[in-house]
Structures are given as C-alpha cells and as structure tokens.
Design a binder for these strands. Structure first.
Lengths: 132, 132
DNA sequence: GCATATATTTATAATAAATATATATATTTT
DNA sequence: AAAATATATATATTTATTATAAATATATGC
C-alpha cells in the first residue's frame, strides 16, 4: 500500500515548463504540439499522464470549461475564467474568489459544500471585432 | 433559404415528457434507458438529436457540469447547480442568478460578456452519510 | 562509477461519448 | 395519390481520454 516514489523525468520537467511558459490555457493536444518542438518523440499519453500528475501535486490546474476538451492552467491559484463562445479562447478574470457564494447556499440542500466554479462567457476582442 | 418546418413526432414528445418527469439531470444515455421503457426501438442518436433540438428551442437546457458527459435539465429557466464530487449527482440550487457578477467584470478584458455559469461542488447527503 | 529495483515512457490498443452517414419510414404539400 | 421533405433507425466514424505491455530512464546503495 506504499506510494510509488515519483521521479523527476525530463519529460515531466519540460511539460511543466512549457505550460508555465504560456498564458493561454491549452488543451492536452495543443500543449503536445508545443512540447514536440523540444521533445519530438514524446507521446501524447505522457502529456496526459503528467498533466494529471501535476494537477494532483497542485502544481497546475485542470480547468473544465465548456466544450469537449479539458484545458490546463500553469497557474495553480484559484481564479475565474472567461471563455469566448465563438473561438473557444479562455482568459483569466481579475476577480478575487467570492467565498460568500458558498456560505449563501450552505445548508440549503444537505450537501457539504467543498467549492464552486464560476465561468464567464462572451466574445473575445478579436471575435467582437470580426463580427462588425 | 427557408427554415425546415419541424414536426412534433412521437419520439420528440416522449423525450420531452420523460425529461420533464425527472428532477435529476440525466445524461443522454441515462435518459435513453428511461425512454426505452416506453419506446423500446428508439435509437440513442434520436435522443441526442432531439435533446439538441429541444435545447435550441429553449424548451430544455443542456448543462455542462464537470465530468465527461453532458447533462440535460427539463427546466429551461436559468438557475445554478451543485454537483457531488463523489457520485456525480447534480441538484438545483435555490439562488437567483446574480447579474452583478457580470457587471463586475465588464470592460475588464475586452470581452463582450454574454453570460456566466456558476456551479457548486460538494458531497451529496448520501455520500456525506456514507463517508462516516 | 556500476548494479539493481522500480517508476516512467513509448507505442499502441481500448474505451466512451458524441456525431455523421446511409437508408428506411413517416408526414406534408401539390 | 404522388412527390417532396423531414425524421428515425442502425451503424460506422470521429474525438478525447485512458489503459496496457514492453522498453527505457531514474534514484539509490554499494
């Protein structure tokens, strides 16, 4: 029942570096494309596995915004996101997490509240511009 | 360029009825299982297609909570949800939509804000109980 | 520095959810 | 009733992700 001792592999380091290097919130395969420029023989499964691992370690976060694919964020701090309904772009929102939201529903439905997720939706500057 | 005239088919009616009959927020295949008790020969693709259509019509809503599968809600009114992190159950939250959330981020990032989604996470009563 | 144990990678296959396609069937229009 | 068109069914395909097995790389003790 003992935990396997994790190893610092080159792939693992590069995946974390590359995710931290971007302010976008890439999907696993977007990041895979980016990483292959440094490690051409890396496997997509390795990217998935390590993103999962890095998330468990609290070094990055997996964000489940709308759309099919999950996205990853090199910033592990809690914060909100906004997603463009037209092109899928995801940006950070400068708004401190609102703890009172959770207290306002506490006890309401018998759930033990553990967190919340707030996602804004709209049109990004580029898509607003293109719309005119 | 004329719009096709939609037809009220028996399948379409049954799908809407069955979704309205439950307070859970079933996935397409959960609803498929339920509907097959009335229409044993219905196809899963028909369920998907009509749920999409009913959503477009504003008669039901598709909710993308965490987890892989999309869920459907027979109540088309805007409202928030809470999801059990353990068993995946989704319940309604009695909290009126907070419009000020959107105004508080307006103009912040160049996005045209069109909406927001707030999802609470926690443990449902059954899972809280089972945990002891 | 070398040997050993084992965690991790790679490549590929498997899975699951959703969608597309090809026909069959049903409904409406003429 | 015939033609046109919408919808359903059954099945195949696509897409995203995860699991598996063999090969490789890493940490640790000598």
């Amino acid at each position: 029942m003992k935990q396997p001792k994790p190893r610092i592999t080159h792939q693992r380091e590069v995946i974390l570096e590359e995710l931290r290097a971007v302010t976008s919130h890439p999907t696993a395969d977007e990041l895979y494309d980016q990483i292959r420029q440094r490690l051409p023989r890396i496997s997509l499964a390795t990217v998935y596995r390590n993103l999962e691992w890095l998330t468990d370690q609290g070094l990055v976060q997996k964000i489940e915004v709308g759309g099919r694919q999950k996205r990853f964020d090199g910033n592990p701090e809690k914060h909100y996101h906004i997603r463009c309904l037209n092109c899928g772009k995801v940006d950070d929102i400068e708004l401190a997490p609102i703890q009172t939201l959770e207290t306002s529903v506490e006890g309401q439905c018998g759930y033990r509240i553990l967190g919340h997720r707030l996602e804004f939706q709209g049109l990004c500057p580029a898509c607003v511009h293109a719309e005119q």
